[in-house]
Design a binder for these strands. Structure first.
Lengths: 223, 223
DNA sequence: TCGTGTGAACGAATTCACAGCG
DNA sequence: CGCTGTGAATTCGTTCACACGA
């Protein structure tokens, strides 16, 4: 996909190495809005409308999208369906991703049951835990398997992406195993700073950090 | 830095309205590292060490801290305990915060059982749900209560902060009620863009968005 | 005319580099 | 000497403002 115009779905002639994190998040935003708008039967949408949600300006929307091509029509706006497809493609959602969930506790269960998961192209192919009481139990059409078999399972099922919901203490061991087995990206919910080799993309979600950013805001806002 | 030495615990003569979000997150980072270092019995720590975790430079660390005063000693580094206390104070952790949890599903349970919660000054004073089968059930020393009583409960118990783990469909109603009852900050896990009045600070955690930022990275990294 | 696409201007955040203090 | 604290330089992200095409 990255080279000069091979056919069809390859408009990415530039390398996008400099797209900021916040810009990527905004693309996710636009995507969700486009889903709504499309469901409502609208055919086109303006940058102004895309911006209306969340403190984004229309110029920002246009700039974001212009990094990836020009999808809009002057005087009209953006065609809803096309734009949705293009953003999905940009975000890498034009395919399914094989995901493993490590940690079958309450948080793992919450992730597992979370609807938007499978629907959006994420295919959960394994659930792993260390607890003998949980191993073998069925979650939907998957049986919980032993973390001891992680490497074998990841390799055999070509897991590309993992969600880690283990306790903090075991998280580093788990990501070492995941990285060793070839997993390319990890979403970590364990409240622990993890070290991963450079070829692995890691993202942390940390409840305490989020709460602290709230208490900071409350403490320092001018009243 | 901060103006002419008023006393003791009030070095905040300037308004910190311009501290960036990422800077606040880094403060949380430093705090966690300081906890470790302190537990290990160290007395001082350098900006270089504080930076070592996560792609932060030592200059960044010094700059971050310098916004709030000068806590370090040249040639020596920062005194661990003092710096920890100061960062806690900066983040608003010098007190406890009264928290309500709305949504007693799997995610709510995960948040509830999350250890680092109560330990770090967050005092959970209510758990609410709509499900009659759940209402009345005990979670630890709290009974799950009816969301219909939210306003009364929030007011009576002086809830300042709420964590929303309801399904997407009910999240907006819940935050409307929370905001109406005087809650000042909300951490939202429901996958829905929420509207809150300006005096309420809202933070979203969205699984799909996090996954999309991973698939974007995987799709566009140069191999 | 309307709204995109985009250079140019601006502003915010990070890094550099070094003076100065312990 | 070692390491902080901080202006200056730089990089990065956002907003402005308008030419241009549908």
């Amino acid at each position: 996909m990255t080279g000069p115009a091979s056919g069809l779905y390859s408009p990415f002639v530039k390398s996008f190495t400099k797209i900021s994190d916040s810009a990527v998040r905004r693309l996710s935003h636009y995507l969700r809005f486009l889903d709504d708008v499309e469901a409502a039967g609208r055919r086109t949408v303006s940058s102004e409308e895309l911006a209306a949600r969340g403190g984004i300006t229309s110029a920002q929307v246009r700039k974001d999208l212009s990094h990836f091509g020009s999808f809009g029509k002057r005087g009209t706006g953006y065609p809803v369906t096309l734009l949705r497809e293009r953003i999905e493609e940009i975000l890498g959602l034009g395919r399914t991703w094989r995901v493993a969930l490590v940690g079958a506790g309450k948080l793992g269960a919450a992730v597992f049951h979370y609807g938007g998961f499978r629907r959006q192209g994420f295919d959960l192919v394994a659930v792993l835990d260390t607890d003998p009481a949980k191993i073998g139990r069925r979650w939907g059409d998957l049986a919980i398997e032993d973390v001891a078999d992680l490497t074998r399972i990841v390799k055999k099922r070509h897991v590309e992406l993992a969600v880690v919901t283990t306790p903090a203490a075991s998280a580093q061991d788990v990501v070492d195993a995941l990285a060793g087995a070839g997993v390319e990206a990890i979403l970590n919910f364990a409240p622990r700073k993890l070290v991963v080799p450079p070829q692995v993309t890691l993202r942390d979600v940390n409840l305490v950090m989020e709460l602290e950013s709230l208490t900071f805001a409350l403490t320092h806002r001018d009243r």
